[in-house]
C-alpha cells in the first residue's frame, strides 16, 4: 500500500492538516505502521503537484488543511477497484534467505526454519493478546488489521512446515568422496 492512497482515503472523510492525517493514519492501521510527519508533508506536496489534493487557508493554529480534489477522488476510486498485483509487493526476503540457506555450506536449514517458526508463533501470541484486550474489542477496523497479520503469520508458518517436510524428504545421503564415480556422486545427491 502506498502512503499516497492512504492519505487520499483519509482526506475523503474531510479536510485535515498533516498532524491530523498522521494521527488518523496510525489510528486506522492500529499503530502497525508508524509515519513520521516529514513523510506526510512530502506525500502531500506530491499529491498537490499531481492535482489530487489542494491546500485550504491556514487555520487558527497556523496549520494548513488539505482537501481531496475530483481527480484525487477518481484516483482513490481506481485504487480501491484495482486488485494489488503480487509483483508490486516487496521481494520476500524469507524465501530468498531459505533458498540461499539450502545452497550455502555449513548452514542448518531446519534450524533456520525453526527459528523463523518460533518468531512467527511469538508474533501470533502477541497479536492474539492484542485481540483479546478489552479496550480493542469494539474497534472493528483494528481487529481486521490484526486478523490480517494473524493470517499472514499463519500462512508463513504453514509454508515453513511445508519447507521442512520437503527438505527432510529430499535430504541427501552422505556425500561421496571427491574421487568416487560420478554415478555414485549423482546418486547421493538425489
Amino acid at each position: 500500500m502506498s502512503i499516497r492512497h492512504g492519505l487520499l482515503a483519509l482526506l475523503e472523510r474531510g479536510p485535515m492538516h498533516g498532524y491530523q492525517l498522521r494521527a488518523a493514519f496510525e489510528a486506522s492501521v492500529g499503530g502497525t505502521w508508524a509515519l513520521n510527519i516529514g513523510q506526510v508533508y512530502t506525500t502531500l506536496s506530491r499529491l498537490e503537484r499531481d492535482d489530487f489534493v489542494r491546500p485550504r487557508p491556514e487555520g487558527e493554529g497556523g496549520q494548513r488543511p488539505y482537501e481531496i480534489t475530483e481527480s484525487g477522488r477518481a484516483e482513490l476510486s481506481r485504487w480501491f477497484s484495482t486488485p494489488l498485483e503480487r509483483t508490486d509487493r516487496p521481494r520476500d526476503e524469507l524465501a530468498i534467505k531459505l533458498a540461499l540457506a539450502m545452497t550455502t555450506p555449513g548452514v542448518d536449514v531446519t534450524a533456520v526454519v525453526q527459528s523463523q517458526r518460533t518468531a512467527g508463533v511469538r508474533a501470533l501470541q502477541e497479536y492474539t493478546r492484542l485481540k483479546t484486550r478489552p479496550s480493542d474489542q469494539d474497534d472493528l477496523s483494528w481487529r481486521l488489521v490484526l486478523d490480517s497479520l494473524i493470517f499472514q503469520c499463519e500462512a508463513e508458518i504453514r509454508w515453513l512446515d511445508h519447507c521442512e517436510t520437503t527438505i527432510l524428504r529430499h535430504r541427501p545421503g552422505p556425500v561421496a568422496p571427491a574421487g568416487a564415480p560420478v554415478e555414485e556422486r549423482e546418486r547421493n545427491r538425489r
Binding site: R117, T118, G120, V121, R122, Q125, I150, R158
Partner: peptide, 22 residues
C-alpha cells in the same frame, strides 16, 4: 499455529524432543 497463539508458552516437539519454545 493460530490456536497456539492463545497460549502463554508454545513448545515445539520433533521426534520426541523439545526443539524450541516460544
Amino acid at each position: 499455529a493460530r490456536h497456539a497463539g492463545w497460549a502463554d508458552r508454545v513448545i515445539f516437539l520433533r521426534d520426541g524432543v523439545v526443539v524450541d519454545s516460544s
